[in-house]
């Protein structure tokens, strides 16, 4: 079962790489021209084309590119002429910081509030929370970010820096204060979904026969929740968390751009503006790989948490 899921993931990633690669073939311009500019001599263009393997048929180029992905060579940036690896290396850590902070805060908050809301179902507190999450869930991430900025940084209260300051050589976490707004935005965007999904999952579980049975046996409520209800909710909830983590990987694009945070998302927007396909491709693959891995983990957790599926694996 787990092996089968692993196989599917590998297949999906390979297909994604093909899809991402096909985009380069649709590119109207000539990458060599883009790197060297308008004044390039035909000889230099030809030389660079040779160097970038642009004269090879598409499948050789695809295989070379794919091989590069496996060996950690992401290609050459058309805008800077440097290697994509060097461009992204420092930004990766900055983005990871943001991702980890947001995930570490958002996951427990989302799950706890969702469970709490499910247990108080129908009461005023549950309805308020559900309403709030419905409204927050509708808002695009940059709207939340701008509202937070006006509230906490520029107009109402002037507490936090609204843009990230990062001189070359400095690390983003040298000023922890500037991490607050971007992380808070990401948290506010993913938490409502986690609340909603945890709530519906928990309500389903709490209404089930085995929970009723446990209650009828006279078990204390806490034991009912933690020993009987929660283990059944783990599988579906893991899926939700995975979805949100994967969303975070895409959502950093907008949030980093908004706060001028020097991470992968900002790099991606810059690359799109420069029509720097190699960089956009590398980042797309990176984000897709993150998505696939996170989903794989969630499925494995789901399989392990569900006795029915577990026994299926053994037989």
């Amino acid at each position: 079962m787990i092996l089968k899921r692993l196989g599917v993931s590998v297949f999906v990633l390979l297909a994604v790489s093909l899809l991402v690669f096909v985009f380069t073939l649709m590119l109207p311009g000539d990458p060599a021209q883009a790197i060297l500019g308008q004044q390039a001599t035909p000889e230099r263009l030809a030389a660079l084309r040779e160097q970038l393997h642009l004269n090879d048929p598409w499948y050789t180029r695809y295989l070379t590119w794919l091989g590069g992905l496996f060996t950690g060579n992401l290609g050459t940036s058309a805008a800077t002429g440097g290697s994509v690896n060097a461009l992204l290396a420092s930004k990766l850590s900055a983005s990871m910081v943001l991702l980890v902070i947001s995930a570490v805060v958002a996951i427990p908050v989302g799950l706890l509030l969702g469970t709490w809301s499910a247990m108080r179902r129908g009461r005023a507190s549950d309805q308020t929370l559900t309403g709030f999450s419905l409204v927050l869930a509708a808002l695009p991430e940059f709207v939340i970010g701008v509202v937070l900025t006006t509230l906490l940084s520029t107009t109402v209260f002037k507490l936090l820096p609204s843009v990230t300051m990062a001189a070359p050589g400095m690390r983003v976490w040298d000023y922890p204060l500037q991490l607050i707004l971007p992380s808070l935005t990401l948290i506010l965007v993913v938490v409502p979904y986690m609340i909603r999904m945890t709530r519906t999952t928990m309500i389903d579980v709490l209404d089930s026969g085995y929970v009723e049975m446990a209650r009828l046996k006279g078990l204390p409520e806490r034991q009912v929740i933690f020993k009987h209800a929660l283990p059944h909710a783990i599988g579906p909830v893991a899926q939700v968390v995975a979805m949100q983590l994967a969303w975070l990987a895409g959502g950093i694009v907008v949030v980093e751009f908004l706060f001028r945070y020097p991470g992968l998302g900002q790099a991606m927007v810059d690359a799109v503006n420069n029509r720097d396909v190699q960089v956009v491709q590398a980042l797309s693959m990176l984000i897709a790989a993150f998505y696939v891995v996170v989903n794989l983990i969630a499925d494995v957790i789901g399989i392990l948490a569900n006795p029915k599926l577990r026994t299926e694996t053994r037989s």
Partner: peptide
């Protein structure tokens, strides 16, 4: 949109993301 994932009965292997709808989409 709102019913929980088909949870315990369905194998996640068959439907990798049972709850695609209510989640923020990428």
């Amino acid at each position: 949109a709102l019913s929980a994932a088909p949870a315990q009965g369905a194998a996640p292997g068959e439907t990798p993301a049972p709850e695609q709808n209510a989640t923020k989409e990428l």
